[in-house]
Simulated assay, not measured.
Amino acid sequence: MDAFVARSLDEIRFWSRIMKEHSLFLKLGFRCEDTQLIQEADGFYRLFEQIEAKAHAFTTATDPQQIQTFNVEVYNAASHIWVFKRKVLGLILTCKLPGANNFPLLVDHTSREANYFRNRLAQLNNGQLEPLADAIIDENVFFLKIMADHAKFIGHLLDPSERKLVEQARDFSHDFDQLLWQAQDLSSMRPQSQTQPLLSQFLDQNRVSVASLRDFKKTARDLIAACRIKSIIHPLLADHVYREAERFLAIIDMFENSLTGKPSPNQGAWH
Rank of each mutant, 00 (worst) to 15 (best):
A135R: 01
L203V: 06
Q50G: 02
R86V: 13
S264F: 00
T60R: 08
S188P: 00
L186N: 06
M254T: 00
V72E: 13
P98A: 09
C32V: 12
K85H: 07
K217D: 06
I251G: 02
A148V: 00
E167H: 11
I252M: 03
P104A: 07
L91C: 02
R31I: 07
A226Y: 07
Q194V: 01
Q184H: 11
L157S: 09
D222R: 07
L124V: 04
H80S: 13
L249N: 10
L179S: 12
K85T: 03
V210D: 07
S8N: 05
D222Y: 03
S187G: 10
V107S: 05
A211C: 08
V241N: 00
F103R: 12
E130W: 08
I229R: 05
D239W: 01
D253I: 05
A100E: 15
I252V: 13
R163W: 05
H80Y: 04
S193W: 09
H240S: 06
Q205N: 14
M189Y: 05
H271F: 12
I136T: 09
F14Y: 14
T260E: 02
A148H: 14
D215Y: 05
R163Q: 15
I233W: 00
I146C: 02
K262D: 06
P197K: 09
L124F: 12
S258T: 07
H234M: 04
R13V: 10
L24E: 12
L124Q: 08
S23V: 10
Q194F: 01
Y242M: 04
G261E: 01
K145P: 01
Q267A: 10
R31N: 15
A238M: 07
F153D: 09
L28T: 07
I154F: 12
L47A: 10
D42E: 15
R214M: 13
A55S: 10
D149P: 03
A57V: 00
S8C: 10
A6G: 10
E21D: 15
A151F: 00
L93F: 04
T110H: 11
S79G: 09
K85Q: 14
K96Y: 03
P98K: 11
D239E: 15
S231N: 06
S173P: 01
V88L: 14
F216S: 04
A114H: 02
F25L: 13
I233G: 03
R7V: 03
L24W: 13
L124E: 05
N126I: 01
A100P: 01
Q205G: 07
I67K: 07
N71K: 04
S173C: 10
R247V: 00
F84T: 03
H271I: 08
K85D: 00
K145M: 08
Y45R: 08
P98G: 08
V83D: 13
K217G: 02
V5L: 03
E256D: 10
R112I: 01
T59C: 02
E49N: 12
A133T: 15
Q123P: 00
N102D: 09
N125F: 07
A148P: 00
N115I: 09
Q178W: 08
N257M: 02
N125W: 08
D134M: 11
F153E: 06
A183L: 12
N101T: 11
E113C: 04
A238V: 04
D215W: 03
Q168C: 02
V83L: 10
H150K: 08
Q128G: 02
E52H: 10
P131S: 12
K54E: 14
A238E: 01
